[in-house]
């Protein structure tokens, strides 16, 4: 039985400063949580900047970042690690959570409610004062290296009730609430990230706002900042504004033809 080398921390380090426009006091709150080694829960709609915020904080705190996109087939072993066969030898491979615990990284579990319920249980000892990870196959308890911090993201209200986070899990986190930025800030973000002119960015943000006004008309969520940036990026590639908005904003949001007609009207008004 051999142990695979953990990935060198440098491969998870963020060397260039990610662009992030602070909306409130979330940066200082996260820093305080990091100093106290508290796990953090980021709540907010899709595409409002949660992942970018974590990247930015990892860079700012100088910590490696390991991101896991959770899905319904994600088992505990996918997070912790497993034995593999190589020739006639068994080989232990650390999972992303174990890697983060060993290297003192920020482990970001994106959309944690999508994971199977048993996976959330393995993170419990890491989120209280024990700060340990138990690997049952190896009968090993790993204490978290200083700097390790667990961050989960959660999109409240849009989930199935059968998949809601349990109180026993929720009450282990400091929670930061995210929402779409105010119009002038969102326009600044869109302009910066996509490279479009400020006027175009304002029009995109206005479109986003108008689409969010009809969130209850068949859209599960409104247009995210990410989609607005995509539309801007398409425009900088020479695609017409109408086409860019259609492919980057309207079509991804809904399959309802009538709703698409309304979205097209809104796009046509603005460009």
């Amino acid at each position: 039985m051999a142990s695979a080398d953990a990935d060198a921390p440098v491969s998870h380090r963020i060397t260039d400063e990610p662009y992030y426009l602070s909306i409130g006091n979330e940066v200082s709150l996260f820093e305080a949580a990091a100093r106290s080694a508290l796990p953090v829960m980021l709540k907010g709609p899709t595409g409002c900047g949660k992942t970018r915020f974590v990247e930015y904080m990892a860079w700012r705190l100088g910590r490696p970042l390991i991101t896991v996109a959770c899905h319904e087939d994600l088992f505990a072993s996918d997070l912790i690690g497993r034995y593999l066969l190589k020739n006639d030898e068994t080989l232990w491979l650390d999972g992303p959570l174990t890697q983060a615990v060993r290297m003192g990284a920020i482990c970001y579990l994106d959309e944690v409610v999508e994971a199977r319920k048993d996976t959330t249980v393995v993170i419990h000892p890491l989120t209280d004062n024990r700060r340990t990870l138990f690997i049952d196959k190896r009968r090993e308890v790993i204490p978290a290296t200083a700097g390790f911090q667990l961050v989960i993201s959660y999109n409240p209200g849009y989930q199935s009730l059968l998949k809601d986070l349990k109180q026993s899990t929720r009450q282990r986190f400091v929670a930061l609430n995210f929402d779409y930025p105010a119009a002038h800030q969102e326009a600044e973000i869109v302009a910066r990230e996509s490279g479009v002119e400020p006027n175009t960015a304002q029009a995109l943000v206005r479109l986003g706002g108008q689409i969010r006004n009809i969130r209850e008309h068949g859209l599960t969520e409104g247009a995210s900042t990410r989609l607005l940036i995509y539309a801007g990026q398409m425009m900088t590639q020479g695609i017409s504004p109408a086409d860019a908005c259609r492919v980057a904003i309207c079509l991804p949001l809904s399959d309802d033809e009538r709703l698409q007609e309304t979205l097209s009207e809104l796009v046509d008004d603005l460009f």
Partner: peptide, 11 residues
């Protein structure tokens, strides 16, 4: 359709 447009545009 028109009602939805008004809702979107005006809030």
């Amino acid at each position: 359709q028109l009602g939805r447009y008004l809702q979107a545009r005006l809030g």
